[in-house]
Amino acid sequence: MYNFEFEKPSSIADAVAALGDEEATALSGGQTLLPTMKQRLASPTKVVSLLGISEMQGICTGDDGALCIGGATSHADVAAGASAYPGLAALAGGIGDPAVRARGTVGGSLANNDPAACYPAGALASGATIVTNAREIAADDYFQGMFTTALDESEIITEVRFPVPQASNYQKFEQPASRFALVGVFVAKYADGVRVAVTGASEEGVHRWTAAEEALSANFSADAVPAAPGADGMIADLHGTAAYRAHLVAVLTKRAVAAAS
């Protein structure tokens, strides 16, 4: 790894100031960033840890009933503490392994937007609001393709607000090596309709499966899940063809609906 200067501010304001330097990067749990830096694929000159900021930690319920999770809250803490939103708690409890869940954070995962990560599916299916030091971004606007988000340089996710659905479930079919999602589907049923978000499958990264949303909004049952989406634009690699991934999208959606019903 290249060397860098390390800072661990205790407030959001100080973190934003520290990130103002060119070539500075925010470090949350580091479970993706540090391995990337070990491979020398990232070379920040300054690393700003967000883990010393207490206002970015923790879980609470907002006035509108949404579950609000501090950006630097670990997956383990969400798994244990998000009982108000069991589908999301289960998602967090299934990321990586226990040691990874102890360090990795919701903000870090969403900022990285790995196309096979779990959290993007949860946030998008929930219609979450990504709160940064500067603004609030709707999930539908936030995810902009693999590893790409609406975040500006040095903008940090301070909180994520998840509207709590009536029913929800996340189904992950693991890639056998990395244990990331080969395909993951999050289904969330709200009073005004069903949202279905798919991770792992598409070259566009996390996305909504609108055909399924429409069908399930009309009839929330596994039988209502439409035929698998087309394979065009699906990821093909060592672990599965595009057609296989497309097939899994439908299978997992059915399973998620069945589990949520």
Binding site: F6, K8, L27, G30, Q31, L34, P35, V47, S49, L51, A76, P98, A99, V100, A102, R103
Partner: peptide, 13 residues
């Protein structure tokens, strides 16, 4: 008190 992967955590943390 929490299990972590020490190869994926900075000493300074």
């Amino acid at each position: 008190g929490v299990a972590v992967k020490s190869c994926t955590m900075l000493a300074m943390e």
